[in-house]
Design a protein around this nucleic acid. Sequence first.
DNA 1: GCTGACATGTAAGCAGTTACATGATTAT
DNA 2: ATAATCATGTAACTGCTTACATGTCAGC
Lengths: 175, 175
Amino acid sequence: MTGKDIILGLLMEKSRTGYEINEVFETIFRHFYKTSYGMIYPTLKRLTKAGLVEKEIVVQTGKPNKNVYHITKKGEEAFNDYLKTDISPEKRESEFLVRMYFGGNESQETLRIWLKNEIQLVENNIEQLKNDHQEWNKKMTLSQSIAYEIGLAQFLAERDVLENYIKQLDEENHR
Amino acid sequence: MTGKDIILGLLMEKSRTGYEINEVFETIFRHFYKTSYGMIYPTLKRLTKAGLVEKEIVVQTGKPNKNVYHITKKGEEAFNDYLKTDISPEKRESEFLVRMYFGGNESQETLRIWLKNEIQLVENNIEQLKNDHQEWNKKMTLSQSIAYEIGLAQFLAERDVLENYIKQLDEENHR
DNA sequence: GCTGACATGTAAGCAGTTACATGATTAT
DNA sequence: ATAATCATGTAACTGCTTACATGTCAGC
């Protein structure tokens, strides 16, 4: 799976601009796929050249013009081919956990700061995820709901562990 | 954070070979940082050239010879400098969740197969994590325990969601 | 004779990331 | 004026992945 596959999938749902594709990555895809314009626009260009998508220039008033991309037959075939490939194992890279691993020599105070910071980040993620869900759930399929709930459950689980440890640190301090 | 930083950190703990560094990545680091020999050996070479680590050739009997790497003063400084940088946001890439997002047109049967497969993978992860923990916990610091428990809690959370949904599918089928 | 653990590397390629660059319009 | 939203791109770099390549020794 590369960015190309996901972009094709999103254009199967409906025609979109690069800007709108980025919005999807920043909302519902946030907790399982991160990317940037630096991937989106060059990919769209390559896909156009390869005949998998078609570009339509839409003139707008009150807003800058935009390029709407439509998937072609060839593009649909490419996406269906992708769907037949094996699912690759998940990739995670958590610098927070790496730091926790190496944090054995840090003071309890430093540890508490790290934990508090991470809780804040996780809570932001939870809130954003819930907001995104409220906007999307009207048209969500069953499998999309599962994707959402797994993300939410994992964030909640992390928050619980973090809060438990902070409590533990506090209790040790008050003894 | 790049592979280089983690390798330096691991060599701060104790001198290791490339093979042993890989073992760490395959056990305790498994759920938050994935890599391969293709990163480890070239990095070790670069680090040696830069004077951050030193290579010692150890002749063994009954086993192939090995290269043990020791961190230098300069290497320790580099690692401490890294520790002062900001923690970068987590990166996740779950092809399973991407497929779930796009899986709206799949049959319940297909969905059930996907869920069962993912449960199997998650359960393998849980078991491996628990095994790794039993081997390492004797010498684990508090913060290392947190890293372990976050990983475990997230896998358990995912398993719960998946199992719930399978149950739901079963119930709908029996109506 | 073969499998599995131990052990070390290279080289080509790629899929991005990061930083840069630009600009219109609307609302405050 | 200035921030926010809408909107599109490029170019250099990089850090890794994948596949290849090689070999020892122990135990069955």
